[in-house]
Computed example of a mutant assay.
Amino acid sequence: MKISVTHKDAMKFEAKTEKSSFIIDCPTISPIEYFLSGIITCSATDIVMIPKNQGKTVTDLVVDGEVERAEDHPRKFTKLHLTYNFNSDADDDTQAARWVMASVETYCSTINTIRDTTEISYSITHNGKLIRENEKMISGGGSKIDMGDIDACCS
């Protein structure tokens, strides 16, 4: 994977990937908000694709993310809670929960990139029923590694 970011003007940057490009407009949307959006979107795509590969369909998917960050710079994520809300034709709630667990534990590379330094939990509402609440990620769980201070973009 390769991405190039070019300063345009003021606090606007253009990110070019191998397939597309988009504008990052700080501080309208900060890089950390893009980062969290990427984490959520990574997992959301799993929640659509895993069932599809099993001949099942997910509809009305909404994934909310809430983070707590360290007070000191570089203000890394210390806690991440993801809330999954969706309908599906899963055989049962256990199958639906397994889709989320597969994403969180195995397939979502963005979540797995931060799991060693971030305590991660999730809740799942499937077909209008809360089936998991504040479940902790099985692996990872955060650690207290100090990477030191850095100058950073606005957050």
Rank of each mutant, 00 (worst) to 15 (best):
E135I: 08
V100M: 03
D91H: 11
I120Q: 00
L130S: 10
M147H: 14
K136R: 13
T117G: 14
R132I: 01
I131G: 07
G140M: 10
T113C: 09
Y107A: 05
I131D: 03
T125W: 06
I114K: 03
S109H: 07
M101C: 02
E105R: 00
H126P: 11
I111T: 14
M147V: 15
Y122N: 06
D93S: 15
I114P: 01
G142A: 08
V100A: 05
D89R: 01
G148P: 05
W99M: 02
I150C: 12
Y107R: 07
I114Q: 04
D149L: 12
I120L: 02
S88G: 15
N134A: 14
T94G: 06
A90F: 09
K144Q: 12
E135K: 12
V104A: 13
L130H: 04
V104N: 09
V100P: 03
D151F: 10
T113H: 12
S88P: 06
W99Q: 00
V104Q: 09
K129C: 06
A96W: 00
E135H: 10
I145L: 15
M147N: 09
D116S: 14
F86S: 02
C108H: 03
R98N: 14
E133K: 15
F86C: 06
D91C: 04
C108Q: 01
D116H: 13
T106C: 05
T118C: 15
I124D: 02
R132S: 09
G141V: 10
T113Y: 10
V104P: 00
E135V: 12
L130E: 13
D151G: 11
S103P: 04
S123K: 04
A152M: 15
D92N: 15
G140D: 00
K129S: 10
S109R: 08
H126V: 02
T94D: 13
K129W: 01
E105H: 04
I150G: 04
T83G: 05
A96Q: 05
T110W: 07
I124H: 01
M137A: 13
D116F: 12
S121M: 06
G148M: 02
R115Q: 11
G140E: 01
F86A: 01
E133V: 04
A96C: 07
Q95N: 03
Y122W: 00
M137K: 15
S88Y: 00
D116A: 11
E119K: 15
T125L: 03
R132A: 14
N112Y: 01
R115T: 07
S88F: 00
W99P: 02
C108V: 07
I145M: 13
S143F: 07
N127G: 11
T83L: 08
